[in-house]
Design a protein around this nucleic acid. Structure first.
Lengths: 343, 343
DNA sequence: GCGGGCATCCAAAGCGGTTTGAAAATTTGA
DNA sequence: TCAAATTTTCAAACCGCTTTGGATGCCCGC
């Protein structure tokens, strides 16, 4: 079924040393021998035992992803799957394994400690950073390479991250709406202890300020990003004495909810009411076509996964003190859901 | 930072043998010594190196999940994240690692062979089985424990699986609609080379047959399950000379699309038009509340992940020739989206 | 007082690779 | 042609753990 290096060597009348070197491309082995070894390996279906290899080399050849399962809000972030898909692609190409831990919030830090102490991974990816996130100092102290998908505002020490420019995206979206004459612009945000949501809010507020629009707490919400949340937010805000003429949604799913609310109210998107949403380009929530349904700040989370993986692998293979950072800009794509503010 | 067994033993003035046995609960070690060892292990933050341990024991202590990334339809199944979350929970409790491989369709079988040959996993989970799926015989021949989430119809040899009763769920849903007087019932299905979709179709057809309703190809569609697909299917079918009075949707997302179409057409769910959808209870697509939005065949995919993981671990730890199978029934929960057929 | 039985502990081999230091085979140079 | 230099190969140690097969010391009964 499968052979060990020793068996392979024996079948060739060679020592394990030579076989190992032949397969790993060391120079001190005869070209003819190398060919012979390669062929035999192929023929006998030899694959090095991962465990043995990484025990011998001291490299785990694996990256850890710890997925927190909030006990408070039992939600699995929907963008997670696409990010993982992108990262997984890259790991696969580079011969790295992806190991996943799903843990309760409270055990998350222990999970990292455990992964590191057991030498199970060479690096870890940090998902869903909060504004103030203990994982960054923790991983720093554990001395393992890590990369944050997103950022965490209240950390001053440098660390590696890949993020999209959430603040600018929402600032641009807000400005775009105010340029269209909207002055009642609502923000239907994700939970604002999440760093990305906090940044979006800042971008929104800055743009309002620049347009001399006083922020109105009645037009700002935050919650878990579900469809019913979008719907409720839309319905309730439209019942305000001075309802919004435009909405900023933090995700496609929330935008779906908003759209349904507007539809129930008999309002036509792009004419009676405007919506701009953030679009992570999740494969099952497409917002494309000749004219996308929604005007959106668009940024592929799958691509983010790919890049994040590449960065993390670089941190792992070429250790350096200088952290790696990358900011991805979201495109503002025009769809059918926006138009000038109605008089 | 972290200690090896040898160091721990040295610091205690004991042999590695004794320390290993003390920590792993073997009987031939003095109770007092065991306590002493445990305390030292705690104090020095000792965690056994996974690689070394599994090399020595021959058990990888890991389960592999291979996620196919179709090149044709670049979609990451949205239910995947919740299933993984459920399975991951169980692995964590049992001291198993979850390793994930994201691979292109064409390389999927090679990925399994590779995982097995490198002894990287003790068992594998098979996702998204097709009607005819080569992975089952492949894994059989590789001689590794595996469990299929779903089933594959065209395989006669026994294998282990966990599935929901898709056929009965859709048969019941269809019958429910026909009991309400509907005779034009549309099926907006997922891709029918996927086994689950084929079974749903069979359930649908059987129920039509039982109700003496001739099936109409114009009322049956299959595609990748996205919101726009649901919308288009709804719009186009409603334009038929004899439009449906009820829809069966294969997922919440498709149902969202259908709902939007009906709304655009000015039709009220539960009065003018009925929708029954399958609801996987994805955490970010809730369909609950006092009266759920949709009447649905409901079955938690997260729970399926938990159970599947438990079964697979059992197969791994207590090898047996008798395969394990489990059928979960979907509940038919009444929501606001169904009502008697309009005259 | 001595062999047998038990409770504890340990040395050493082994898991399947990599890597160091040295030996064997081959080529080179005078 | 033979020693030296260079290739090419190998034996053995090691990675960190488990596990087999004894050792060791102690208590017991006769």
């Amino acid at each position: 079924m499968s052979v060990t290096l020793k068996q392979l060597a024996a079948s060739l009348g060679l020592s394990p040393t030579t076989v190992s070197r032949a397969l790993n491309g060391f120079p001190e082995v005869n070209a003819a021998t190398r060919v012979r070894v390669r062929e035999a390996a192929e023929r006998l279906n030899y694959h090095p035992n991962t465990r043995a290899k990484s025990l011998a080399t001291g490299r785990a050849q694996a990256i850890g992803h710890v997925i927190p399962l909030s006990t408070s809000h039992e939600i699995v972030n929907p963008i997670f799957a696409d990010f993982i898909a992108g990262a997984g692609e890259v790991y696969g190409q580079s011969g790295y394994e992806m190991i996943l831990r799903v843990v309760a919030d409270a055990e998350e830090e222990r999970a990292y400690g455990d992964l590191v102490a057991r030498r199970a991974v060479d690096g870890v990816m940090v998902h869903g950073p909060r504004i103030r996130d203990g994982r960054v100092p923790l991983l720093d102290s554990l001395g393992i390479p890590f990369l944050v998908h997103g950022r965490t505002s209240e950390i001053t020490s440098p660390y590696s991250w890949l993020d999209i420019n959430n603040k600018r995206a929402f600032q641009r979206a807000t400005q775009f709406l105010s340029d269209l004459g909207h002055r009642r612009i609502a923000l239907v945000n994700g939970l604002e202890d999440m760093d990305f949501a906090a940044r979006r809010r800042r971008g929104y507020l800055e743009a309002l300020d620049a347009a001399n629009i006083p922020p109105d707490p009645a037009l700002m919400r935050q919650a878990e990003m579900t469809e019913p949340y979008g719907y409720r937010a839309g319905m309730e805000m439209m019942r305000l004495p001075q309802p919004p003429t435009a909405f900023l949604a933090s995700s496609m799913i929330v935008a779906y909810g908003l759209r349904r609310a507007m539809s129930d109210l008999g309002l036509k998107l792009g004419r009676d009411i405007s919506i701009v949403t953030h679009d992570d380009e999740l494969s099952y929530l497409p917002n494309d076509g000749d004219i996308p349904m929604f005007t959106a700040t668009r940024s592929s989370v799958r691509e983010a996964g790919r890049r994040a993986a590449r960065m993390l692998l670089q941190l792992v293979t070429q250790p350096t003190d200088a952290p790696l950072t990358e900011m991805m800009e979201a495109a503002l794509v025009l769809g059918a859901s926006t138009g000038p503010a109605p008089k």
